[in-house]
Amino acid sequence: MVRVPLTEAERERGERLGALLRAARGPRSMAEVATEAGISVETLRKIETGRIPTPAFFTVVAVADTVGLPLEALREATTGAAVR
């Protein structure tokens, strides 16, 4: 299966998502957050740096829940759209 290359907008959205999750993590270590979210530290690192610009939904939910970030905030930050 050949994967369609991401657009520049998709890459930028992934970088915004990663930056938001990193900021929400605050002083907590990557290891602590990853363990609590049930993912590997390497997966969290890749998401935070934008190297996984389209992470799985349930992975994002787990990380957001762990760092106390509402999904609405993620949506607004990555799409610019306010939740109605």
Rank of each mutant, 00 (worst) to 15 (best):
R13I: 01
L17M: 05
R3K: 12
T78R: 04
S29K: 10
S29W: 07
G14C: 04
S40G: 02
A19V: 01
I52R: 13
I47W: 02
F57V: 15
P55M: 02
G80M: 00
V2L: 10
P70K: 09
L6H: 11
T79Y: 11
G50I: 00
L17C: 05
T54R: 15
R13H: 05
A81W: 05
T54K: 15
I39T: 09
E72C: 09
R84L: 04
A23E: 15
A73Q: 15
L71F: 12
A34V: 01
E72W: 09
R28P: 08
M30E: 05
R11A: 07
R45C: 03
K46Y: 11
M30I: 08
M30F: 09
G38E: 02
V41K: 13
G14K: 09
L6I: 07
P70V: 09
G26V: 01
L6F: 12
L21C: 12
L20M: 03
T59L: 07
A24P: 01
I39M: 10
T66W: 11
I39H: 10
I52S: 14
R11D: 05
T66A: 15
E76H: 10
A73L: 13
R11W: 09
R3E: 05
L21E: 07
P5M: 03
V60M: 14
G26M: 00
I39Y: 09
M1R: 10
G68D: 03
E72P: 04
V4I: 11
I52F: 11
S29T: 15
M1C: 03
G68C: 11
T79S: 14
T7V: 09
F58L: 14
T79M: 08
G38L: 03
V4A: 11
V67F: 03
A37N: 02
L17W: 04
E15F: 06
R11F: 08
G18F: 12
T7K: 10
M1K: 11
A34L: 01
V67I: 04
E15Q: 13
L74P: 07
P53A: 14
A24S: 04
A64V: 14
R84A: 08
A73E: 15
L21T: 10
S40Y: 00
L69T: 02
V33P: 01
E12F: 02
E76K: 10
G14R: 08
E10S: 09
A64E: 11
D65V: 10
L6N: 08
E36Y: 06
A62P: 12
V41H: 08
P27S: 14
F57D: 09
A23R: 15
F58G: 06
F57K: 13
E12A: 08
A19Q: 08
I52V: 12
V67N: 02
F57R: 15
A64F: 13
G26S: 01
L71C: 12
V41I: 13
E42D: 13
R51L: 12
A73M: 12
E32R: 14
L44E: 05
T43G: 02
A9W: 03
V33F: 02
A37Y: 01
A73H: 14
E10D: 11
L21I: 08
